Simulated assay, not measured.
Amino acid sequence: MTAILYIVIAVIVFGVLIFLHEFGHFFTAKLCGIKVNEFAVGMGPALFKFQKGETRYSLRALPIGGFTAMEGEDGENNDPRAFVNRPVWQRIIVLVAGAFMNILTGFVIILIIIMLTNPIPSTTVAQFADGATSSQTGLRAGDRILSIDGAAVHINMDITLGLITSNKGKVNMQVLRGGKVVDLPAVQFPMTDDGNGGKVMARDFVVYAQQKTPGRVISYAFYWTIAMVKLVWVTILQMFTGRYSVKDLSGPVGVTAAMGQAASQSPSMLFNVVAMIAVNLGVVNLFPLPALDGGRLLFVIIEGIRRKPISRKYEGYVHLIGFALLMTLMLFVTFNDIVRLIKR
């Protein structure tokens, strides 16, 4: 029964995130005067559909995606309201809107989590664990951390991000100490297993809490969302450096398992995972890869620079091949997710 409940939760979460993503495309398309033929949540055969005006609305059987079918989206079209005939800036807005809605959803969830949880952690060191290596290599209690390896630290999560994205065992830090900015070269931290056979630095200190105010809550939620965006980019980039591999990716099965594990711990953990999934969907969709919104966006930007479009036929071939490769990757990732679950 528990497994079924987790699957139901996952289907609802994916359904809501897909709906919001497609609604971003739909709303901005309508706002820009683009003709929308169909707004669909899910893929495959339609379970429920109705027509309102020029647009058909449908709920489809497979909860693995959705689409906003716009007139003239995939080729030449003489209709002045076709997507392909609208100004470049309008098409850019429509293409970005889906990812924006996902990231905005992540921000709202994080905002709610912060409002309902304990005081906000600061970036000022309160005390160290016994035998902390960071305190022996330059860091002191009372230091407010300003940056790690050149990356600005705005919130507590930036500290964690700065440590887990490095496996060198030491980082360069900049802190505010006694009102003065101090550079701390080669601050060392203990190493711990990252769960993928590698090592990451672990924090060996805690920070002070700070009182919640409306401005501080909004600011913290904003920078937390930015930190999640950066984490997605860093993880993808580290796949190219060999630190992570395609085998470490998770698909719907793995994400469902992660949500189930989080739900078994606390509602807060579950919503934290959902926020991360929402931000992930938004960021990944903007990658300049064929078949993704980012791939289509790249073609539109090139058209804006060249003052003329790339051949629609060749663009269609690129997206078709990209979609096939994406589906192949999804099958591979899903297979790995199932293998990991069996081995547990």
Rank of each mutant, 00 (worst) to 15 (best):
M1G: 15
I4R: 01
V8S: 11
I9F: 12
V11E: 03
I12S: 12
I12Q: 11
G15F: 15
I18H: 02
F19G: 13
L20C: 07
E22V: 07
E22I: 02
F23H: 12
G24F: 01
F26K: 01
F26E: 02
F27Q: 01
K30L: 15
L31V: 06
E38Q: 14
F39S: 05
A40V: 15
A40Q: 11
G42H: 00
M43G: 07
G44T: 06
G44W: 05
A46Y: 15
K52E: 06
G53Y: 08
E54L: 11
Y57E: 14
L59Y: 02
R60Q: 15
L62F: 10
L62N: 04
L62E: 13
I64M: 12
I64S: 02
E71W: 00
E71M: 12
D74H: 07
G75W: 10
E76N: 02
R81I: 00
F83L: 08
G106S: 11
V108R: 01
V108M: 11
I112V: 08
I114M: 08
M115Y: 05
M115N: 08
T117Q: 02
T124C: 13
V125R: 01
A126R: 08
F128D: 03
D130R: 04
G131Q: 07
A132E: 08
S134H: 03
S135T: 09
L139I: 07
G142M: 03
D143T: 04
R144I: 01
S147Q: 08
D149I: 00
A152N: 05
N156T: 15
N156R: 13
M157I: 14
L163P: 10
I164L: 05
K168G: 10
L176K: 14
R177P: 03
R177L: 05
V182W: 06
A186N: 13
Q188K: 06
F189V: 04
T192W: 02
G197T: 11
M201G: 03
D204C: 11
Y208D: 09
G215P: 11
I218H: 13
I218K: 14
F222Y: 12
W224H: 08
W224Q: 04
M228A: 14
L231P: 03
L231W: 01
W233Q: 11
W233M: 14
W233S: 04
Q238A: 04
F240H: 12
F240R: 00
Y244Q: 11
Y244S: 08
S245P: 14
S245D: 10
K247E: 10
V253Y: 07
A258D: 10
Q265N: 10
Q265Y: 00
S266Y: 04
S266W: 03
P267M: 00
V274M: 05
A275F: 04
M276C: 03
A278E: 07
A278W: 07
L281R: 02
V284E: 01
A291Q: 05
G294V: 09
I301K: 05
R306N: 05
R307Q: 14
I310K: 02
I310Q: 01
S311W: 05
Y314M: 15
Y314G: 08
G316T: 11
I321L: 12
F323G: 12
L326Y: 10
L326D: 11
L326E: 09
L329W: 08
F332P: 13
F332W: 05
V333F: 01
V333A: 09
N336H: 06
D337L: 06
L341M: 09
L341P: 09
I342T: 00
I342P: 02
K343A: 14
